[in-house]
Structures are given as C-alpha cells and as structure tokens.
C-alpha cells in the first residue's frame, strides 16, 4: 500500500521506456540558465576547437553553415525534470569539427558566450552522438534556447548541451564546468539519474 500523497492520481500518459526515471513529459520548452541571456549576432559569431597545446581551428558563421548538415530528431531531458520528445534540430554533426584535430585529451570544456562552461568526455561528442545546432523546429534557434548556436548532446542531461557555445577546449584532465562545480553531477546520464554530486 502506498503511504504517500493520498488521493494523487497523476495523468494517464505514462510513456514507459521513453521517459528516464524521475522525469515528466512536457509539450513546452522550458528554459534553464544561470544568468541573463547573451545576445550574440551571427556576423561576429565564431566557433573554435582548441587542443591542449593551444592550436585553434576557427569557423565563422558562413563556414559553419557550409559544413555537412544533419537534421537530428531526438528526445531531450532536463535535470529540472522535464523531458521533451521528438525535438527537431538542424546542425553540424560534431565529428565534422574534430576531423583534422590532433589530440590526446580525453575531456573537453565547452565554453560559451556569456561565460558558461560545461565539461564532457571527448568521446561523448564523437561518433554521431552530438551536434552543433542552429535551427530548432525549422526556425533559427532563439537566444533563450541558446541561439545562434548551441551544442546538442541528447544522451546527457540538457545542461551539457551548452547554449551560446563558442569554443571547445581539449583537456588532458577532467575539470568541472559551471553547474558541475555548484552541485550537479559530473557526467549527467539521465537513465542513471545522475543529477547531483551524491547520485
């Protein structure tokens, strides 16, 4: 017998198998950000990949748009407990930025306009698991959702999909990013419910 919350019924839609533990489905697109939304014009936008020895490869907006494009349709899961199914994006598969990069690093720091950072294992950006996206649902990605371009790493909690990303920096040793240093889990797998330090 359940002893908690007598009389609670919940909704009838249950999405078993598609909804990670502790999440609920939403039709909205809520926003999680630590500060105000930066406004980054595309004509001064650049994106770089910087290796551990300081070598940088840069792309401006046109160069990025000229790279191969894909249209991933993925489920996304935010640590604030909403999940959104079948979100449609357009962007560059992340492997395209790593093609000519020589690195022995196992980790990266994603750094954003506005100062946000998040750390990931490099392999989580490889082999078709991640994108740099600039279009959501057919429209240019809006600033509050990370436009003009953000990372999309749908197999991890969505804070890892850095908004307003400007640089990927290779790190031989792992280092916590912004949310990771104020209590969020270092890796953030929604299926293992890795929300906080104690999980």
């Amino acid at each position: 017998m359940n002893t908690f919350s007598p009389g609670f019924q919940g909704r009838t839609h249950r999405f078993e198998g598609r909804l990670p533990p502790g999440q609920y489905p939403t039709e909205d697109f809520p926003v999680l950000s630590a500060g105000p939304t930066p406004n980054v014009p595309t004509d001064s936008w650049t994106f770089s990949v910087v290796t551990e020895d300081g070598t940088a490869r840069d792309w401006n907006w046109e160069q990025m748009k000229a790279l191969p494009q894909e249209e991933p349709e993925v489920d996304i899961h935010c640590v604030t407990r909403w999940s959104k199914f079948g979100t449609r994006w357009q962007g560059v598969p992340f492997d395209a930025f790593l093609d000519d990069v020589e690195t022995a690093a196992d980790f990266v720091m994603a750094e954003s306009y506005g100062g946000y950072t998040t750390n990931l294992p490099l392999e989580d950006l490889q082999d078709g698991k991640a994108w740099l996206v600039h279009t959501y649902d057919g429209y240019p990605l809006s600033p509050e959702h990370g436009g003009p371009a953000r990372l999309l790493v749908p197999h991890l909690y969505f804070w890892k999909s850095a908004k307003w990303v400007r640089r990927i920096r290779m790190m031989p040793d792992d280092d916590p990013g912004f949310w990771e240093s104020v209590g969020y889990h270092n890796y953030g797998d929604p299926w293992r419910e890795q929300r906080g330090w104690s999980d």
Binding site: N2, F4, S5, F8, Q9, G10, R11, R14, G22, Q23, Y24, R81
Partner: peptide, 10 residues
C-alpha cells in the same frame, strides 16, 4: 507524489 498504482510525478 505517488499514485495508488505506483505512478510517480516530481
């Protein structure tokens, strides 16, 4: 919250 049938919402 937990419903009679075990369904949970957070």
């Amino acid at each position: 919250l937990t419903a009679e049938d075990g369904y949970q919402a957070v």
